[in-house]
């Protein structure tokens, strides 16, 4: 007796987002099926993997991570070039120095840094604020203006500051990241609010604020699955590609920060595994843009994606 391949008849699809400029533009999303199931729908684009660049030398990073970038840690443009050399599909610039608890860098100075990074590399950019909602509204507006026309992914917008950031993205031709704390209802509502300002649905990325392995990964995993199934069954307000900030979360864990010991073994190996395992889990859950910190995790994550999409190594 022949075995019939069971295929789900999906009615919706994930919106396709363009990032960056030709000839180095990237497309993400566009799937009309679950992750890596091309036999029942379209998977036009692979997940993309980027590395993080900070606008000031990171104090908290463990030595095993810092050593990868060496002197470049003090120069965001050089750091970004190094990331591209490591094979990053895109650069994620995080303007942490703008935080009042750090250097309280002015929006103008931060925007200048963003422009310097944009000019140093030719891959698409993600630019993030400092994480303080009030400061980020003005900061990201300045960044959007300084990078006008470069089609950058800017974030993160929250229910408290999305209006200014959305307006800037519309005027200057950027995409926006909508952040919601592991809550699919809030994610959907924020997408509606942003879309009501007339920013098209394919210019919004969902940031579910993922937790790393051992620290709430399952919550984000199931939310991402639920969003994907929503998109495939016709819920347009959940049909956006998902961005996962994995590096910043992973390198806060004690498993990544604790030095070599008998119980957990070698730190260098353990930390990279912690980051790449988190990343491949979210790739399976439907993540489209993965932001990491360690070049070896980047390599392993890209190897996994290549294997899943059937590309030869």
């Amino acid at each position: 007796m022949a075995v019939a391949i069971v295929k789900e008849r999906w009615t919706g699809q994930v919106a396709e987002m363009n990032m960056g400029l030709e000839p180095n533009a990237l497309k993400v999303g566009g799937e009309s099926t679950l992750p890596f199931l091309p036999f029942e729908g379209g998977c036009p684009n692979k997940p993309v993997v980027g590395l993080e660049v900070l606008d000031m030398e990171p104090e908290e990073w463990p030595e095993t991570l810092k050593i990868q970038y060496g002197d470049a840690l003090t120069d965001p443009a050089a750091w970004a070039r190094k990331c591209v050399d490591f094979g990053a599909d895109l650069i994620c610039l995080r303007l942490i120095s703008a935080h009042p608890d750090q250097k309280d860098t002015s929006p103008e100075a931060a925007a200048a840094t963003a422009r310097a990074v944009a000019e140093a590399v030719n891959v698409p950019l993600v630019v993030l604020g400092c994480g303080m909602e009030e400061k980020d509204a003005g900061l990201l507006a300045a960044v959007a203006e300084a990078l006008a026309g470069r089609n950058v992914l800017i974030g993160c917008a929250t229910p408290n500051n999305y209006k200014t950031i959305t307006a800037s993205c519309m005027v200057h031709g950027h995409n926006i990241i909508a952040s919601s704390p592991l809550d699919i209802n809030l994610a959907k509502q924020l997408n509606i609010l942003i879309n009501e300002m007339n920013l098209p649905l394919n210019r919004i990325a969902i940031d579910p604020l993922v937790g790393p392995l051992g620290y709430g990964l399952e919550y984000a995993y199931s939310i991402m699955e639920r969003a994907r199934i929503g998109a495939l069954t016709g819920d347009k307000m959940l049909s956006m590609p998902v961005i996962c900030f994995i590096g910043s979360e992973t390198w806060k864990t004690k498993e990544a920060k604790t030095e070599d010991n008998q119980e957990w073994g070698e730190q260098a190996r353990r930390a990279v595994l912690w980051e790449s395992l988190t990343a491949v889990s979210f790739v399976q859950a439907g993540g489209s843009v993965l932001i990491l910190r360690h070049p070896e995790s980047l390599k392993q994550c890209k190897t996994h994606i290549a294997a899943m999409t059937g590309a030869t190594k």
């Binding site: 809030l186 959907k188 509502q189 509606i192 819920d235």
Partner: peptide, 15 residues
């Protein structure tokens, strides 16, 4: 059957 959001009355009418 559909995912909750605060604007659920509106999204139902838009489908």
């Amino acid at each position: 059957r559909s995912i909750y959001c605060d604007a659920f009355l509106k999204t139902f009418r838009q489908r």
